[in-house]
Amino acid sequence: MTTSDLAQVLFTSGLQASADPSPEQVRTAIDERLCACGGDRASCTASVAQEAGDHPDEYAARMRWALHTVTRTFPGCVAAA
């Protein structure tokens, strides 16, 4: 999965930026969210588009956080496929 893919999954998790999660918490949140979606990333991230339309200001801030957090947690991850 790319950085973008992982950030979208993290975005849909319950993890909050204010919690300043550790890398292990981020990995766990991503794994749990993917498992909850049956491993289907597309199904898991469908709510990202809905959130962007419903709350664009909140969406932008959360996605920036998710991208930054994934980049820190998975430093060798591919930026785009």
Rank of each mutant, 00 (worst) to 15 (best):
E58P: 01
Q25C: 03
T45L: 11
H68N: 13
F74N: 01
A66Y: 02
Q50W: 05
C37K: 07
P56V: 00
A66M: 00
P21C: 13
A60M: 08
F74G: 01
Q16P: 02
A66C: 00
L10W: 09
Q16L: 03
R41T: 06
D57R: 14
A49F: 10
D40H: 08
A46E: 11
C37W: 06
C44I: 04
T12H: 15
L67F: 13
H68Q: 09
V26I: 12
V9A: 07
S22A: 14
R27P: 09
Q25Y: 12
L6G: 00
A79T: 05
V78E: 15
A36H: 07
V70M: 01
S4F: 15
A17K: 07
D40G: 06
R27D: 08
T3G: 07
A79K: 10
A81K: 05
V26F: 14
A60H: 15
A81V: 00
H68F: 06
P75Q: 10
G76C: 02
A80H: 09
D40Q: 07
A49V: 02
P21T: 14
E58N: 04
Y59C: 01
A17H: 05
E51Q: 08
E58S: 03
C44T: 02
P56T: 02
A17C: 00
P56S: 06
E24P: 10
R64I: 01
M1S: 03
T3P: 01
G39L: 01
M1C: 01
